[in-house]
Amino acid sequence: MENFNEYHLNPQEFPFLESFQDNWQVIRDEFKHFLQQASDEELKFTDEVFGPKSKTIKTKGNSKYSAFGILFQGLFIEKYIQLHQIQYPDYGSDDASKKALRLREKYFSNLAKVIEKVNFSNDGVIRNVYFGTFHPGLDIKLHVNNNPHMNRGYLGLIVPEGDVAMKICHEQLYWYEGKFLILDHSYPHCPHNYTDYDRTVLVVDFFKPDKSREEVIRFEQEQVIQRMQDNPYSLGVFGKSDKANEEDFIKYGLAHQLEWDKAL
């Protein structure tokens, strides 16, 4: 029996996520097929354009994580690029948008159908959808994600056995293939992967149900404008405010970790 609380949430409270969970093997297979069949040019383009890139979340050591997705702030990637007229070093906005659409339709058609179905029936509740991979040895410093209007769901796709976990407040939580782990990321957390294998999940950000849709969309728009100004390649997912500060450590009873974190 799992214990849920204010930061570790029960997936059954969010029935609109069932469509993702019911199709988790199809989604996983699309991810694997893309990695196996995509050309070097397609892989390079996806890495550079499908983001999100973060300058705020720091790792300990050299091991990194990678992420790419097809939905950001409720828009498919090609529409998001056009809306914000993102200019990439090797691609203009129009060219990047057209290429992104072709790749999304070629490799991720089933995932896109699930997103469209859920958002059509639930007033656009799903905001970001991307694959997140922790490479072996990854250790991320304690941080927050300053998205007080959203919860973050992790649907396990490829989860190796061993010590790959999320430390949040006083708990250590684990991912499981085919199941959602739902967190409120405004609480300090630090994930790691101490195995010899990649861990990949589907990250699904969605609006919290306790505020009016107009209010959270207005907040989201203001936040995204600032984040895109700071770093357009973040796709509005991460921002400068995501770094844990002293108040975060103290507020959640983690003051004893403050000096340890500073030292790292």
Rank of each mutant, 00 (worst) to 15 (best):
E246H: 14
F50R: 02
N110Q: 15
Y88G: 04
P148D: 13
V26D: 10
A67W: 00
L235S: 02
F68Q: 01
F45V: 09
P188L: 02
R127Y: 06
R28V: 01
P232H: 09
T56P: 00
C169R: 12
E161T: 08
R102C: 05
K106S: 09
T200N: 08
K44N: 09
K141G: 15
I158E: 07
K99P: 01
Q37A: 12
E18T: 12
L202A: 08
Y91F: 14
Q229D: 13
S39I: 07
N110C: 13
G153Y: 02
E105V: 04
E246I: 10
K167T: 10
F20K: 10
L43N: 13
G253F: 01
G137W: 01
F31M: 10
H8P: 00
I70S: 07
K106L: 06
N146Q: 11
H185A: 09
V237E: 07
R227G: 00
P11E: 08
H135C: 05
R218E: 15
L17N: 07
D205Y: 06
L183N: 09
H170M: 08
E13G: 07
F238V: 03
P160K: 07
G253V: 01
G74W: 05
Q12K: 15
V201L: 02
P15K: 14
W24R: 11
V216Q: 01
D248Q: 09
P11K: 12
E41R: 07
N110K: 14
